[in-house]
Nucleic acid binder design. Structure first.
Lengths: 142, 142
DNA sequence: CCTTGCCTTGACGTCGGCGTCAAGGATTAC
DNA sequence: GTAATCCTTGACGCCGACGTCAAGGCAAGG
């Protein structure tokens, strides 16, 4: 199979495959005409890469999985090195999720505070001074 | 105050301030010698930008806050446009967190599955065939 | 034979938010 | 006075995973 077919069957592009090859991740045999030639096993490797990429793994992080498959193991994660990557990734994800939740809480708090302040200003304008139209934008106090 | 002092007081770099200026976010007045000149109000704006940046806001997303302050409002989030940014960000964060949690769950499952497979192989090797040393790497089945 | 479509390598572009260097002018400390 | 430190603009570098274009070779269908 040639590069275009492999790309299509894996749902990616020829550019991506050449890039992987340039990174030494997915080398290709060559036909007489110089065309890259791939087989079903390459498709397997490529799908492993793509799956991990979709999970947000760096390209380099997929290498142990690919090497594991290429070494003849039944799965990309049949090797200790792959399991280590999984574990590092889990820790990384946990840290990231915690961080994002913290940010989410802080932003939520800011929004709530700002909305309270806005509503208090609106209430102030309604009761004591009189219901004058509030200037939305532009030098207000100034 | 000149650019170096402002940078230091905001805990950032002169390069960053020039970058903000190039993006039209934090323009500077110029002294007779051509040096940029800033005041306390600029420091305020800059701190607003930095806070949001630390939350992971894009630079463009800080613009409404800066413009709000520059318009004379008491806070960067005293304007509707800023509140909209907050809300968009909250949605974005929620989506991202969900996505990461989903990925985390899937990776965790993969790890558990792979570890089970490994342990089953180890158990197989221990009981029936005999406790032969297992080949760690290299063509095993092949 | 000619067109269409695949393939090749090479190389520059993208995105965001700056870092880093270069060459030179201004200011300040001693 | 002079050296050290600040400032100026300009421009290239970085990171990751490719996209996109260019110029050309090879193949297959009508």
């Amino acid at each position: 199979m040639r590069i275009g077919e492999l790309a299509e069957r894996a749902g990616t592009t020829t550019r991506t495959l050449r890039y992987y090859e340039s990174r030494g991740l997915l080398p290709a045999r060559r036909g007489e005409n110089g065309y890259r030639t791939y087989d079903e096993h390459d498709l397997r490797l490529l799908r492993q890469i793509r799956t991990l990429q979709d999970f947000g793994f760096d390209l380099e992080e997929t290498r142990p999985f690919v090497e594991c498959l290429r070494a003849g193991h039944p799965e990309g994660d049949s090797c200790p090195a792959s399991l280590d990557v999984y574990r590092r990734k889990l820790g990384e994800l946990d840290g990231l999720i915690d961080e994002l939740r913290s940010v989410r809480a802080q932003v939520g708090e800011q929004l709530a505070r700002a909305e309270r302040a806005r509503d208090e200003l609106a209430a102030d304008a309604e009761v004591p001074g009189g219901p004058e139209p509030v200037c939305e934008l532009g030098g207000q106090t100034r």
